[in-house]
Write a protein that binds this DNA or RNA. Structure first.
Lengths: 146, 146
DNA sequence: AGCTCAAAAGACCTTCATGTCCTTTATGGG
DNA sequence: CCCATAAAGGACATGAAGGTCTTTTGAGCT
């Protein structure tokens, strides 16, 4: 798997809230999971992390739910990938050599390193805002599992 | 994980045999697993596949073991990755959208597709021979987990 | 204050890649 | 022909990611 399911769900969840928060109060987990067709409780744990990190607002209780924060749109995908542990995976040597680095490279190191850098550049350079910009709520269909 | 452990072990195993087959008869699984510090029986199953595919020669019984075949050095990493199921993972949509393709892309599709292509180019364009070329057996230390 | 709603927290289950062990099969040597 | 050797095969164990359920916590409403 290039990215874990957790990363995929995190991205879907943030995008959903980012796309639909306009003019609404809070969006409930129930709705998000149902529309995106994603496991509810598992998504719940991930949304929880996103709230703790300030990537989303999360409010308990009556009229509670999730909403965008000041940082939501500025959040790069890299932050989500770090949150879900996907970055350590990306950095780990293909041959699991613990001594593998630029000075002491495994046979694939120098071939793979540039690609790693491109991935990071992509993830660091793409924000939630970038993905949502100019999209209307109808765009949700393209982020659902269908 | 960029690549599965199976892929890493497969590559390590092939490289070990490719590097040390010169002037020797057969190389036993015991030795490979011990030197590479890799789980013996698990590696055994992977080497088995490599033998079945003709990427290596495998011989049972007395003086048996693994050796290079005519195709060993010509084998691209892509073949190993296909063998271990890593290519289907690379191709699967990050958002798990089943309808995601060039015509009906998920929000990340067009950003990720070029990177996928680069990965494939790297894997298809790099053979075991490329990795072994000009290396002496001492090179094994760089493919062991240490 | 008490009620209701919705997220948080934590226990538990499932699945799959990984890893181990034991038995079977095939090969060469005496 | 028998024995030792080494891979193949299949049964089983483990661990981590993914997924579910129930209880607890916190917030607003009346």
């Amino acid at each position: 798997m290039i990215f874990s399911k957790s990363f995929g769900y995190a991205l879907q969840g943030v995008l959903y809230v980012a796309l639909l928060s306009d003019g609404r109060d809070r969006i409930q987990l129930d709705e998000i999971a149902r529309i995106l067709m994603v496991p509810r409780y598992f998504l719940g744990k991930i949304m929880n992390r996103l709230g703790k990190e300030g990537i989303l607002i999360s409010v308990k209780g009556h009229n509670g739910g999730f909403g965008i924060s000041e940082t939501t749109f500025k959040t790069p995908l890299l932050t989500l990938a770090e949150l879900t542990g996907d970055m350590v995976q990306l950095d780990s040597c293909v041959l699991k050599s613990r001594t593998c680095n630029n000075l002491n490279p495994c046979p694939l190191h120098h071939k793979i390193e540039p690609l790693r850098e491109e991935w990071k550049k992509l993830l660091a350079g793409t924000t939630i805002g970038d993905l949502v910009k100019g999209r209307n709520p109808d765009f949700i269909r393209s982020i659902s599992a269908i």
